[in-house]
Every structure is written in C-alpha cells, then in structure tokens.
Simulated assay, not measured.
Amino acid sequence: MNGDFTQIMRTEHLPTRIATQFSRQIQKGALKPGDKLPTELAMSKSFGVSRTVIREAIAQLRNEGMIETRQGVGAFVIERPTRHIRLDDGGQMDKHAFRDLFQLRVPLEIEAAGLAATYHRAEHLQQMDEALARITATGENANDGIVADLDFHRTIAMATGNDYFVQFLGAISDRIMQTIVASRERLQLDEIVAVVRREHGELRDAIAARDPLRAREAMRTHMRNSAERVALQLEVYA
C-alpha cells in the first residue's frame, strides 16, 4: 500500500479520516481514475482498524463520488466532476454541530424527495429496495445498515436528476454517518432498525407513486424523527 497512508488514532472519527487520506491521494494524482483500491483486508491491516471501519470509509468515498464499487471485484477510482465539494475537518460532532447539519439537511433532502418522486427511473427504485433490505441487517451485519442508510439517501439525490444534490449530500456524508451511528447508540438495535425501515419504506413508496407532496412530507417526518433520535428538537418550516 502507498507509504503516504498512515495508521489512524483511535480518538479520531475513523472512517472519515481514512476516507480523507484516500481523497488526498486521488486529488494529488497518486490514485488515478481506473485504479483499484486495496482489498478490505489489506486496508484493515495497513490502517490498524476493523474491516467494518474500512467499509464505512469506502461508503463515504462512494457517496462523495470519488470511487465506485463493483460487486465481487472491488473499489475503483472514478473520474470526478469538475465541481466537486469536499469538507475536510472530519472531527467528532457535538450537539451544536448536529443541529447545524440538520438545518442544512432538512430543506435539501425534502426538496430532493419531491424531485425524486417526479424524475426517478426504475433503477433508482431498485437501488432503494436493495438499500432497504440491507438497512434491516442485524447481528454480524448490523453495521452494513449504517452504510445502507447512507446509500438510500444518496439514491434519492441521484433520482432528482440534478447532480448538485448528489454533490452536496456527498460533501456532508461523513456527518450524516455520524448522526446514524449516534442514533443507533441511543436505542436498541431492533427498535431503531424497525423504525428506520418503516420511515424509509414510506419514503420509497411515495417516490414510487410519483407523488411529490407525499414524498416531501415523508422526508420531513423522517428528518424530524432523525433529529429527535439524537436528542434534537427542530423547527421544520419547509
């Protein structure tokens, strides 16, 4: 593995720090479009972290539009659009940061849901269904539910047909992942899985029905409930 990669301090937000190191290698040209990333096992050993952490880092890079993953083959660097947004602080979030994040997410994701209901294609519904199946994972695969949750929201952004939604959601994907992790730490796994599965299912059905108003309302409810799961009370006006 490239010598520029270093082991990660365990006090840092691990997936974000690993994703940042790969992002810098891509931006410097050390990793070029078409290059294959090392295997999960190789990265786990190199960074000194679990494979679960590596999967979350890969999911973040995918959501940021840095890489693509091919089933059974691996992860590959892709050509990035010229207007690429990335935030690099990667720090742990406190309650104030969570509030700031949701104040941005609420109008962004409500509007995305409405547009997705209007412009989605069949493949977007298929991707949502695949993510929904993974969101319900428990036991050894429970952490895949976190990645699947992020993938579900990215699919909605893609379904808008507007790349700016994908770009902005990708830029805050590590923060969104931290809120998902925080909510799962506050509730029993079975409880959070059931609630999130229901909320995402309602979103998916509203988008599939091509009902923008219903989709916006389903996302509004999901955003409000997501905030409450990390002990926030939001004023939602959208």
Rank of each mutant, 00 (worst) to 15 (best):
T20S: 11
Q71W: 04
E40K: 13
I67T: 15
R86P: 00
Q21H: 06
F165H: 12
V193M: 07
P15D: 08
D35Y: 01
H96P: 00
V195Y: 06
R184G: 15
E64K: 14
I146G: 02
D88Y: 07
P38W: 01
I8Q: 03
Q188T: 02
I180P: 00
F98M: 07
S23M: 11
T179H: 07
V230F: 01
R197V: 03
A209G: 03
H96K: 07
E111T: 14
R198Y: 05
R186P: 04
A19T: 05
F47K: 02
R175H: 09
M219H: 00
D129K: 13
G74I: 01
L232I: 07
L37V: 04
A133E: 14
A157H: 08
A215Q: 00
A97E: 14
I146W: 08
N63V: 08
A238G: 05
L232Y: 09
N63D: 13
L104N: 03
L187F: 13
L187N: 11
I54R: 03
V77G: 03
G72Q: 01
T52Q: 11
R134W: 05
F47L: 09
F168R: 12
T155E: 08
A113C: 11
R80L: 15
D88Q: 11
R51N: 10
R24L: 10
T20Y: 05
T16F: 12
I192V: 14
G170K: 04
T221R: 15
L132C: 12
G139M: 08
R204K: 09
Q60R: 02
R51Q: 15
G139R: 08
Y237M: 06
I78H: 02
F22I: 11
Q92A: 10
G74L: 00
T138M: 11
P107N: 08
N143M: 10
A208F: 06
E123F: 09
D163A: 13
I176D: 11
D205I: 06
M223Y: 02
R55A: 12
R175Q: 14
M158C: 06
A42F: 01
L108F: 10
D144L: 14
A194K: 14
T138C: 05
R105W: 00
A97D: 15
T160E: 08
N225F: 02
G29P: 03
D151K: 10
E123L: 08
G65W: 04
R17T: 13
